[in-house]
Structures are given as structure tokens and as C-alpha cells.
Simulated scan of single mutants.
Amino acid sequence: MSSKSRLDSTLASDDDFHLNAECSVCVSYVGEEQSPVLVIDNFWHNPEKLVALAAQSGGFTQSPEDYYPGLRKTLDGSVKAVLEEELGLLLKQHLDNRPHRIELGFTAFSLTNVPPAKLSPMQCIPHFDSTDLSKFALVNYLFKEPLGGTSFYRHRKTGFETVSKSRAFEYQQALQLQASTEGMPAAEYIMGDTNLFERIHTVPAWFNRAVLYPCNLLHSGDIPNVAGLSDDPKTGRLTLNAELKILQEQA
């Protein structure tokens, strides 16, 4: 289902970072498990300013503890505060009918830049971010070239589309068994059905589009144009990524 969202239009100005007062939201329930995936178009009031913020003063680094195939840069605190408040208002309208607020955890600009030959096996298959059912992931596309969106998957052997605490051990055991019996995945970005995974839903990337989904949903970025991967935030596959926790409030 799709609808327009209304935030306080006085929030938006050319001088500040704010969500677009007239962004549009489409909610889909994907796969057999009917996981909610929200697509928000025209997300920021001034997305070009976010790109400029990402590009200024460098600051992108690669962490050996991060499975992300590229570089990260911590998001400015003031932008994070605005995102936490205004995204919470949107979710009250569209995610469910219960009052709630959100707390942002990890928040950063990201640049995918690792060539396929240098990917680790875990970077070549879908992944989940957390087994916590109250956590959601946000990916905001801040690039205009056709550098790929996000897809969601079902693990064929277990049938899992999401990985909860109760499923995590079985899922990891199944992956390890398949690695030893069927071999490691090819050194490439996953772009659809494989012998291990079935793609169940795709969100194409558009400039200033955001996609929000449960952190335990198996997913992967679609990277169709590896020649376009760049370290430059102005031309590369720049996204704003965040993990948020939805806190239910008593009426």
C-alpha cells in the first residue's frame, strides 16, 4: 500500500537537514513470512546537501570487524538527531497503529567499493544484521547512476527468510554443511537466485529513496555495475545506513 506522508512543513528549510514533508511511503509484506518492507521516496528535503556532507573532509575508513564491502563514515550528530525524531513520526503513520518511538544505533554514510575478486565468502551471500525483532535497518540511496538497490532472499534448505535467535544455530549449521558439501560461493556480488538462495523481493535504487526492513530479514545489496564502484561519494554507490530500535510505548 502506498500513501503520502505529512510532517510539519515548517521543519523543512534549505538551511537544515530535514525529511521531506511530502515524501511518499509504500509498505509491502514480502515472502511467505510477510515481513514489512517500507519504501520511502523523496526522503530528504535537500538530499544534495547530504551528498555534500558525505564528500567533505574525507573521513571514510574500512573496519576489519565490518562485513560491509566498502568504506564507512560516521554520520553527523545533528543529522542523526533529526533522523531519529522525524523518522519516528513517519513510522507512527505507516509501520503499525501503536504509538512508538525509535532509537538510532549505528548510523553512517557507506560507499561500496570492494571488487568482486576480493570479497570474502560471507560477502557473496545474503546476510542478516541482527536477530532482535525490534530492530530495523534503513538504507537511503544517495547516488544517481544505476549502481543497484537491495534484494531479499529465502534460504532454500531451511526455508528461512528471517533469522531469529531460535533459528540462528540451525541456519549457521546449514550454511557450514553446504560450504563443505557444495563448495564456497563464487567471488561475486549475489544478484538473484542461486543454488542456495531464492530472491523473494527487490527494491530498485532511486536517488533520495530509502528502504526500511527488519534487521533479521536476509538481504543483500544489488551491485550490477562493478565498474561504477568508486571511493568518491559524489560518483560512487553512496548510501546512508542506520540501525534503529523500535520502542513500543504504553498507551
Rank of each mutant, 00 (worst) to 15 (best):
S3R: 15
S5V: 11
L7D: 05
S9M: 11
S9T: 13
D15W: 06
H18I: 00
E22T: 12
S24M: 06
V25M: 01
C26P: 01
V30G: 00
G31W: 03
P36A: 04
I40V: 13
I40H: 01
F43Q: 03
W44D: 05
N46Y: 11
P47I: 08
L50D: 02
V51N: 07
L53D: 14
L53H: 14
A54V: 02
S57I: 09
G58M: 06
D66N: 07
P69V: 00
G70S: 02
T74M: 08
L75M: 10
K80A: 12
A81H: 03
V82P: 07
L83W: 04
G88M: 03
L90G: 02
L90D: 07
K92T: 05
K92C: 08
Q93K: 14
N97I: 13
P99D: 10
H100M: 12
H100P: 03
R101F: 14
R101H: 14
E103L: 10
E103D: 05
G105L: 01
F106D: 09
F106K: 10
F106N: 06
T107I: 06
P116F: 03
A117H: 12
M122H: 14
Q123I: 07
P126D: 04
H127L: 11
F128K: 07
K135G: 00
A137E: 08
N140Y: 12
K144F: 08
P146Q: 10
G148E: 00
G149M: 02
T150E: 07
H155M: 04
K157W: 01
T158F: 08
T162G: 06
T162F: 02
S164V: 05
S164L: 03
K165L: 13
S166C: 09
S166Q: 13
S166E: 14
R167C: 05
R167T: 03
R167I: 04
R167N: 04
F169K: 12
F169W: 12
F169A: 12
Q172C: 12
Q173L: 12
Q173S: 13
Q173W: 06
L175P: 04
Q176N: 15
L177E: 15
S180Y: 13
A186W: 05
E188R: 15
Y189R: 05
N195T: 13
L196F: 01
R199P: 09
T202Y: 14
P204V: 06
F207P: 01
A210N: 04
V211H: 04
Y213D: 02
N216R: 12
L217M: 08
H219W: 00
K234S: 11
T235C: 06
T235F: 05
G236M: 06
T239S: 04
E243M: 15
L244I: 05
K245W: 12
L247N: 15
Q248K: 15
A251Q: 15
